[in-house]
């Protein structure tokens, strides 16, 4: 179980997160929605300390990081318990697909090379890239790179995988293959937090939807509640604008 308590973050005078509380149960798939600038990506990046929150607490099971005075070692542990899939993929450019997935296993988890290789090949096969083991990122399409990114995150057996708009940088044609992989691993019961603009995907895959605006959580609940009967006016506005087809009556 992941628990965020009163997470706040400012960039200079700009207060991006204003005390976020969020609880994510084990195996839950959380979709975070909201307009640009609402702080959703910053929140995600705070969870594995790519951004340093100014205050608050991040707990994973009984391990807690106190963000006001974090211990370096705790940040390191937190990062080992979480994994991130980036909008821009951020694959290691000088390493092949296989090496990208193996890197964390060999260097961080200290697995013997043979074992790491075997596990990495399995994972790449799972995301449909068993035939691209020795390709460098520059030889892969965006969708393929992102699937390697997902395999790299899965390899570490994290408590939670954080997805930062995993399909926003992709050609529309390639979005489907990445979403299919995410859907597949969601079914395996891995806890995931996904920042996304793909509404139908969120509706379909998530079992917990969070709507954020201006640094606070406006509303959260199961997808049916949020998409079909939002309580807050702000959520309604946002959904009406982003899913216009639902407002048409033919």
């Amino acid at each position: 179980m992941i628990k965020l308590r009163q997470i706040s973050k400012s960039f200079g005078r700009n207060e991006v997160l204003k005390g976020i509380d969020l609880t994510v149960e084990k195996g839950e798939v959380v979709a975070i929605l909201g307009p640009s600038g609402s702080g959703k990506t910053t929140l995600l990046r705070c969870i594995n300390y790519l951004e340093k929150p100014n205050d608050g607490e991040i707990s994973i099971d009984d391990f807690t990081v106190h963000c006001r005075k974090p211990v370096k070692k705790d940040i390191h542990i937190l990062r080992q318990k979480t994994a991130m899939v980036f909008q821009q993929y951020n694959l290691f450019r000088h390493k092949t697909a296989l090496e990208n997935v193996m890197e964390g296993l060999v260097i961080v988890k200290k697995l013997p090379k043979d074992e790491a290789r075997k596990k990495s090949i399995e994972l790449l096969e799972k995301v449909g890239l068993g035939n691209k083991l020795d390709s460098y990122p520059s030889q892969l399409s965006g969708g393929q790179q992102q699937r390697v990114g997902i395999a790299r995150a899965l390899a570490l057996n994290p408590e939670v995988i954080l997805f930062d708009e995993p399909t926003s940088a992709l050609d529309p044609e390639l979005v489907g293959e990445v979403l299919a992989v995410i859907r597949k691993i969601a079914k395996e019961g891995i806890t995931m937090i996904i920042v996304t603009h793909e509404m139908s995907f969120a509706q379909d895959v998530a079992n917990h939807v969070v709507f954020m605006d201006e640094g606070v959580i406006v509303e959260e609940g199961n997808p049916r509640e949020i998409f079909q009967s939002p309580k807050e006016e702000r959520t309604r506005q946002f959904l009406a604008r982003i899913t216009p087809e639902s407002t048409y009556v033919i």
Partner: peptide, 17 residues
Amino acid sequence: NKGQLEAAHAIGMTTPQ
């Protein structure tokens, strides 16, 4: 690219690693 260092941190590497 800054993303390279972030990705390395995200998989649990220390900064020297």
